[in-house]
């Protein structure tokens, strides 16, 4: 079952989160307990509004828990850290910056050595097949290319934890599949710890080592499912191969009813 607390790269301990506004109070997350091992890739699924994005914001230090603790390497999160890279649903590229300068944004904010950062950025762009576009502006790129630039921008700070909040939901179906496969394999090959939010069950299974289901608001951890493929032996199949396995179909069915897919 899920690792919890000690020894985890990332841990939520009895976390509650309430949003306050003059009109009302929203209980977004309730008693979250969740641990993620170093190098593990988990996906979080749940109905819209159940607190998935909130969970990532807590981990990134953009907001503080109303109650409970959020730990990274055993230490409480106090604010955004270089070690966490956050990929948001919208690529939010700055249209006034070239591709290269967009990738360098984080390094600039952290006041890193510009020459070294630039070398890293160029290497990443090369790797993501964007080298020839480094002096282009975002408006000249397709949706898939823009999202790869956003990935390069995240990776340029060399974070060891990656947070992804529905990073493909703005893309067309076809690009979405291939980009998801590509990004999953990049993250896996670099052995990053990754937490991805998605409302796409198929994406959740094909990319993750473990799928966490949140209940409707207030979000609680309703169930966790390890993603393993005994039918393929020990090797991790590519996201594309995963979709062909019987385990995938079974897990899809289980997750569908667990999330409450019938109540659309």
């Amino acid at each position: 079952m899920a690792p919890s607390g000690a020894g985890c790269k990332v841990a939520f301990e009895n976390v509650h989160l309430h949003y306050f506004s003059p009109a009302n109070e929203t209980h977004a997350l309730s008693d979250i307990n969740l641990g993620v091992r170093a190098g593990e890739f988990i996906t979080i699924v749940g109905q819209s509004g159940c607190g998935k994005s909130t969970l990532l914001s807590l981990l990134c230090g953009l907001i503080a828990p109303t109650q409970g603790r959020v730990l990274i390497d055993g230490a409480p999160v106090t604010g955004p850290s270089r070690r966490i890279g956050f990929m948001l649903q919208h690529d939010s590229l700055f249209e006034w910056r070239s591709v290269l300068d967009n990738v360098l944004l984080g390094a600039e904010i952290h006041g890193q050595d510009p020459a070294q950062a630039r070398a890293r950025a160029e290497a990443l762009l090369e790797r993501y097949r964007l080298a020839e576009f480094k002096h282009h502006y975002p408006r000249q790129l397709s949706g898939g290319m823009r999202q790869r630039v956003a990935l390069a921008r995240t990776m340029c700070l060399e974070p060891d934890i990656l947070l992804l909040d529905e990073p493909f939901s703005a893309l067309d179906f076809q690009i979405r599949l291939s980009l998801a496969d590509e990004i999953a394999s990049i993250i896996r090959s670099e052995r990053k710890t990754a937490i991805m939010v998605t409302h796409d069950i198929s994406e959740a299974i094909s990319m993750a080592d473990r799928v966490v289901v949140l209940s409707a608001r207030p979000g609680r951890v309703k169930a966790e499912y390890p993603v393993v493929f005994p039918s393929l032996g020990s090797a991790r199949p590519s996201p594309f191969e995963v979709r062909e396995t019987p385990e995938y179909r079974e897990l899809f069915r289980v997750l569908w009813s667990s999330i409450g897919g019938h109540q659309v």
Binding site: C60, L62, H110
Partner: peptide
């Protein structure tokens, strides 16, 4: 939000 995730 993006800039904030970089801790600006």
């Amino acid at each position: 939000k993006l800039a904030r995730t970089f801790g600006c």
